[in-house]
């Protein structure tokens, strides 16, 4: 049994919220730089070059990359030999979000009730996903999610007979409909299988996989590559103003599902695809 003080979780989450909103992870930064070098459309190149400047200014002057600093999505993989002490884990996570968004000059974008819509003024609560894994470590992933792209995300409950072609059409439909609203170039997280909520969660977690790293399942890797090529053939381009760079990656996760179903979740993220990982 390993004991971890929840205050250590709070401190890490606070730092990770601030880091994620000012610095893109290396995989995303590299993908953006490659896109800026390869885009064919003159206006598209100009937009990607502005986004390169934007990343530089964000890091140097500590101005968030995007004013929508997101709703804080936190994945916690907790080793089953860990014991937390000093308070409730969920409170410690939310305290980290509170401190990060307040002390880090991040925008408070969360309303307490979806219909009454009163701002909580500290960006809490976050959306927290726990899973129990083997070992005595805690893997924390913080992925603040902007809503320009979140609003364009979709779930399709396909029939098994629609098969892989149905999945492709679902993803392309979501991206086509998102168009300029989702701040392309986008990253597309896809979850195939499971249940209604499982496919959405898989799609969300797929967004946090490094851009450029493919699924280990051969047919899924092929599907990721084919969909990326077809999405970039849609012409939407940077900022939705035409070009070849509509998406930087398609990341797909799969899970067993029911004999009667083929759920497909498509979670769209803008080019500010924030994800920071720490293991403690």
């Amino acid at each position: 049994m390993r004991e971890i003080k929840v205050q250590e979780i709070t401190r890490n989450i606070k730092e990770m919220c601030i880091e994620a909103n000012h610095f893109l992870s290396k995989d995303m930064a590299d993908a953006m730089a490659n896109a800026a070098a390869s885009e064919e459309s003159p206006l598209g190149r100009q937009i990607l070059s502005q986004l390169q400047d934007n990343l530089k200014i964000a890091g140097e002057d500590m101005i968030p990359i995007c004013q929508d600093t997101g709703m804080a999505v936190v994945f916690l993989e907790v080793g089953q030999d860990v014991h937390f002490e000093g308070g409730l884990l969920v409170d410690a996570v939310n305290e980290g979000i509170r401190q990060g968004y307040t002390e880090g000059y991040l925008r408070k974008s969360v309303v307490r009730d979806p219909l009454i819509r009163e701002n909580t003024k500290d960006n809490t609560p976050g959306v927290i996903h726990f899973s129990i894994v083997e070992g005595s470590r805690v893997r924390i992933k913080v992925a603040p999610k902007g809503f320009g792209s979140e609003n364009m995300s979709r779930i399709f409950m396909l029939k098994p007979a629609e098969g892989i072609e149905g999945v492709k059409e679902a993803v392309l439909t979501a991206v086509r409909d998102a168009g300029p609203n989702a701040c392309p170039p986008m990253v597309i997280g896809v979850g195939i299988g499971g249940t209604f909520e499982k496919c959405a969660l898989m799609a969300k977690e797929a967004l946090t996989r490094e851009v450029g790293r493919h699924s280990e399942i051969p047919y899924v890797k092929e599907l990721e590559e084919e969909l990326l090529a077809r999405i970039n053939g849609l012409g939407i381009g940077p900022g939705g103003l035409g070009g070849r760079t509509t998406a930087l990656a398609v990341n797909i996760n799969t899970y067993p599902t029911h004999i009667a179903g083929l759920p497909v979740g498509v979670n769209i993220c803008c080019h500010v695809n924030r994800h920071v990982v720490r293991v403690i």
């Binding site: 937009i47 502005q50 400047d53 968030p64 990359i65 995007c66 320009g148 900022g239 803008c270």
Partner: peptide
């Protein structure tokens, strides 16, 4: 007009 989405640091200048 469209401004470039996700360029908030640059536009703030």
């Amino acid at each position: 007009f469209a401004a470039v989405g996700g360029a908030g640091a640059l536009l703030s200048k």
